[in-house]
Write a protein that binds this DNA or RNA. Structure first.
Lengths: 213, 213
DNA sequence: GTCTATATCCTGATAGAC
DNA sequence: GTCTATCAGGATATAGAC
């Protein structure tokens, strides 16, 4: 009912906030919470540093907003792909391809920032969003795969569904990583080949095939 | 020939430098390069901050010394275990147990710091030490396992020896990680069970066993 | 809603006495 | 070899004009 009062200003304010979030996302995700100053964010969006504080009360609040938005973005893609029909392997392949394509930043760094650079309340908020938005839908897929007999469960040398989800994300992070030393050239075959390799290694491992009989 | 001149002072100087390195290692490895101030390091060892500069020219030089020492420590353990006789699986198990026991800090954080927080020269120095001291001996073990038919090579859905070494370290980092949310209790079975699970998953993956015909 | 100006604090590093 | 004192710069955040 009150929404129509000065609707234009509200919209502009929202647009500025979105521009700030966009710039902050790029900087925070690339260099980490501590390494990015509020001045850098402001400069990237063409404002002075104090102007940020009209939209976000603290640097930490800005980071939380960025991380929540990023988790929501990943969640949407993950849930869309996880809902598809088909064998577990193909769904994992789709998820790997999506994540390898859409995550263009340092994933372990974001994870570290969420875990150690923020206050307790922010950490709990982001932890819950990360678990509910990313781990939980992946875990549901792993649980379904175990029920279908496509994945080993804990009783047969596998992992719990949430454990499998965590390992899958560790694989994604590893395949996203650019090596510290050696060739920095693009991976041969690009994302598609990486996703194929990722799922193959996750499901079948590195060991030679030997009959267990 | 000149070594005996004021030998006692040299020794004390070395001891102080070692104390600084020890405190710096604990702090840098736990919280990261940026998050630790030189004052914190000095305080931890009972000195004032400027006294550090008598032993290390810059904060970055101190970090490089810490990281080089840590890589050397890991290298010694890795080479000792990798030289043992026995099946690849058992040697990997020994390596996993060693690393899960001896690495009590945030491994991806150290990796990130080495890759992005330092100047080019330091980065190259540490990258070379990391590759030569950790990746290379592991890669030799993977190559031997492939020659023995115990590990799949690149032509059969596996990885290059260095790629296998990198994946192994990613597994170690994952098993070291304390989850952002959920139970923070110790893993059931401790290091031994974790090492067992790590090697099993690395070699056999999460997929159900199916004959490949 | 954004600006200029500034408060307050912390950072890495240096100067010089002892 | 370690201290006190300090510099110069950068950080987050606030005050108040417009």
């Amino acid at each position: 009912m009150v929404e129509r009062r000065r609707g234009g200003n509200e919209q502009e304010r929202e647009e500025t906030a979105q521009l700030i979030l966009q710039a902050a996302r790029r900087l925070f995700m690339a260099h980490g919470y501590r390494a990015v100053s509020t001045r850098q964010v402001a400069e990237a969006v063409g404002l002075t540093q104090p102007a940020l504080y009209h939209h976000f009360a603290t640097k930490e609040e800005l980071y939380v907003a960025v991380a929540l938005g990023e988790v929501a973005r990943l969640r949407a893609g993950i849930e869309r792909i996880a809902r598809r029909e088909g064998p577990t392997r193909e769904r994992l392949h789709g998820l790997a391809r999506f994540l390898l394509t859409t995550v263009d930043y340092d994933f372990p760094l974001m994870y570290h920032d969420m875990g150690t650079e923020l206050g307790e309340q922010s950490r709990e908020t982001l932890g819950a969003a990360f678990y509910g938005g990313i781990i939980a839908p992946l875990a549901a897929l792993f649980a379904a795969g175990q029920r279908a007999g496509e994945l080993r469960d804990e009783a047969h040398g596998g992992l719990s569904p949430a454990g499998g989800a965590g390992l899958f994300m560790a694989f994604v992070a590893h395949f996203l990583d650019r090596p510290l030393v050696g060739e920095r050239t693009a991976r041969p075959g690009g994302v598609e080949a990486s996703a194929e390799s990722l799922v193959g290694l996750l499901l079948e491992g590195l060991g030679a095939r030997v009959d267990r009989g």
